[in-house]
Simulated scan of single mutants.
Amino acid sequence: MFRTGFIAGALLISGTTFADAEPVGNRVDVNGMKMYYEISGEGEPLVVLHGAYMNIPSMGAIIPKLAETHKVYAVELQGHGRTTDIDRPITYPNLADDIAAFMDAIDLKKADVFGYSMGAAAGLQLAIRHPEKVNKLAAASVAYDADGWQPEFKAVIPQMTVEMIVGLPFAEDYRKLAANPDGFPDLVKKLIQLEKEPMAWEADVKALKAPVLIIAGDADVATLEHNVALFRLLGGGAMGDMGKPLAASRLAILPATSHTAVINQTDLLYAFAEPFLKGETPKGMFQ
Rank of each mutant, 00 (worst) to 15 (best):
Y73G: 02
P169F: 12
Q125G: 00
E76W: 07
G79C: 07
M103P: 09
I99C: 00
L177R: 14
L137M: 05
G123E: 01
A143T: 13
A127V: 13
V72R: 06
K109M: 11
V75T: 08
H130L: 08
N135E: 08
P64H: 10
R82Q: 13
L168K: 14
G115M: 13
T84R: 05
A122L: 05
A127T: 11
A138D: 02
L108P: 04
G81S: 08
I157N: 01
G167N: 15
A138Q: 04
A122M: 10
S117D: 08
V162S: 04
G119R: 04
E132Y: 10
E152H: 12
K136N: 01
A146D: 12
I99L: 04
T83P: 05
A105G: 10
G60T: 08
E76N: 07
A178K: 06
T84H: 05
K176N: 11
A122S: 14
K65C: 02
G119W: 03
A155L: 12
I165N: 01
Y116V: 09
A178T: 11
D98K: 12
K65V: 07
G119C: 05
V113G: 00
F170S: 11
M164A: 13
A96H: 00
A171I: 12
H80A: 01
R175A: 15
D173K: 15
A140M: 12
F153I: 15
F153V: 14
A61N: 13
K71R: 15
V162W: 05
P131R: 10
A111Y: 07
P93V: 07
A120R: 00
D147F: 06
K176S: 12
I106N: 03
L77M: 15
I157T: 13
P131I: 13
D98F: 08
A127H: 11
I157M: 05
E172A: 15
N135H: 14
I106C: 04
G119E: 02
A179T: 14
P169S: 04
V113A: 01
M103E: 06
F153E: 02
Y116R: 00
G79K: 11
V156P: 03
F170I: 06
F170R: 11
M59Y: 06
K136M: 03
F153Y: 14
N135G: 08
Y144M: 13
E76I: 05
A101E: 14
I62G: 01
T161S: 15
I86E: 01
L126M: 10
R82H: 07
P131M: 07
G148P: 05
M118W: 10
H70S: 12
L177V: 09
K71H: 09
E172P: 01
R82W: 06
V113S: 00
P169C: 04
A61Q: 15
Q159L: 14
G60Q: 09
F102H: 06
P89H: 10
E163H: 08
A122T: 14
V113C: 01
